[in-house]
Computed example of a mutant assay.
Amino acid sequence: MLIVRSLLFNVAFYANLVLWLVLLFPGLLVPPRVFMQGVKLWGRSSLWLLRVIVGTKIEIRGREKIPPGGALVAAKHQSFHETFTLVTILDDPTYILKRELMWIPLFGWYLWKAGCVPVDRKAGSLALVQMTARAKEEARHGRQIIIFPEGTRRPPGAPPAYKYGVAHLYQNLGFPCIPVALNTGLYWPRRQFIRRPGTVVIEVLDPIPPGLPREDFFKEVQERIEEASDRLLAEGQRELGLVPSSPSEASLSKAG
C-alpha cells in the first residue's frame, strides 16, 4: 500500500502543480504580494494531497517565534517538502536560489514575479555582492528571505555541510535570522518516489538577533539547527519504527 499511495500521490502532486501553473498565469499582472497568496494556496493544496492520499500530516512548532517584518530564514534542507511548506507559514517569503531556475519557461517567470533572489554561482565574489543587494531590498520591504545554508538537500543524519553564504547575508542584511529545523527527509526522501505516512515536524527556533560577529553567528546557526534537527530525526525515527537497535547502528545512521 505504501508504494501504491506514493505513486498516486506523485501523480496527483504533479497534476496539481501543472494546474496551478496555469491558474497562476494571470497573477503575473497583479502585485507580487497578491501573487504570493496564490502560491500559498498551491502549497496548502499540496499538503492536503499529502495528508489525504499518503496520511502524512504536518506539525509546525514555534510559529509564534517568527518576528514581524523582514528577516533571514535559515532552514535545514532534506526534501522538496519544505520548499513549498515554508511559503505557507511565513507572511511574505522569498527564496535565495540558483540563477538557472529563473530561465525555466513559465516556472522561471513565477520565480521572478515572487521576487526570488538569484545567485550566479559562476560569478564568484560578485555573486555575493549581487545576492546581498537584492536580498536587502526585499527584506526592507518586510519580506522573509529563505536560504538553505547547505545549498542542497542532505539526507537525514548526514554530516552538516554549511556554506558561508548564510553568514555573509546575516552580516550585511542587519535583520534577525530565524533558524528552522525539520525531519522532512524521513517522510519525503530525496531522489525517491516513496512518501511515508506520519507527522512531519518543522520547528521554528529562537531568532538570532542581528549584530553577532560573522564567525560566532556561523557557529551558532549551525549548532541550533543541527541540534534541533537531530532531535526531530530521532522523534521521526521512533514514529516510523526506524530506531537503531544498537549504538553501532546509530553511528552508521548518523554517518550516512
Results as ranks from 00 to 15, higher is better:
Met1Asn: 01
Leu7Lys: 04
Phe9Asp: 03
Asn10Arg: 06
Phe13Lys: 11
Tyr14Pro: 00
Leu23Ala: 14
Val30Gln: 01
Pro31Gly: 13
Arg33His: 09
Phe35Leu: 12
Gly38Pro: 03
Leu41Asn: 10
Trp42Ser: 06
Trp42Glu: 00
Gly43Ala: 13
Ser46Asp: 07
Leu49Trp: 11
Leu50Lys: 09
Leu50Phe: 10
Ile53Tyr: 11
Ile53Glu: 06
Gly55Met: 02
Glu59Ser: 14
Ile60Trp: 12
Pro67Thr: 15
Gly70Cys: 04
Gly70Ala: 10
Ala75Gln: 00
Gln78Arg: 09
Ser79Ile: 03
His81Met: 13
Phe84His: 09
Leu90His: 07
Asp91Asn: 10
Pro93Asp: 12
Thr94Trp: 11
Leu97Glu: 00
Leu97Gly: 08
Leu101Cys: 02
Met102Glu: 06
Pro105Asn: 15
Gly108Tyr: 13
Trp109Ala: 08
Val117Leu: 09
Asp120His: 12
Asp120Met: 10
Arg121Phe: 05
Gly124Ser: 05
Gln130His: 12
Thr132Gly: 13
Lys136His: 12
Lys136Asp: 01
Arg140Asp: 15
His141Gly: 09
Ile147Arg: 10
Phe148Lys: 12
Phe148Ile: 05
Phe148Leu: 09
Thr152Glu: 01
Arg154Met: 04
Gly157His: 00
Pro159Met: 14
Tyr164Glu: 07
Gly165Lys: 08
Leu173Phe: 07
Phe175Ile: 07
Cys177Phe: 10
Val180Trp: 09
Ala181Trp: 01
Leu182Asn: 02
Gly185Asn: 11
Leu186Tyr: 10
Tyr187Arg: 13
Arg196Phe: 08
Gly198Glu: 11
Gly198Gln: 05
Val201Trp: 04
Leu205Phe: 10
Leu205Met: 11
Asp206His: 11
Pro207Met: 14
Ile208Met: 10
Leu212His: 10
Arg214Met: 03
Glu215Trp: 04
Glu220Phe: 02
Arg224Leu: 05
Arg224Asn: 03
Glu226Ile: 05
Glu226Met: 05
Glu235Lys: 15
Gly236Trp: 13
Gln237Asn: 08
Glu239Tyr: 08
Ala250Thr: 03
Ser251Val: 10
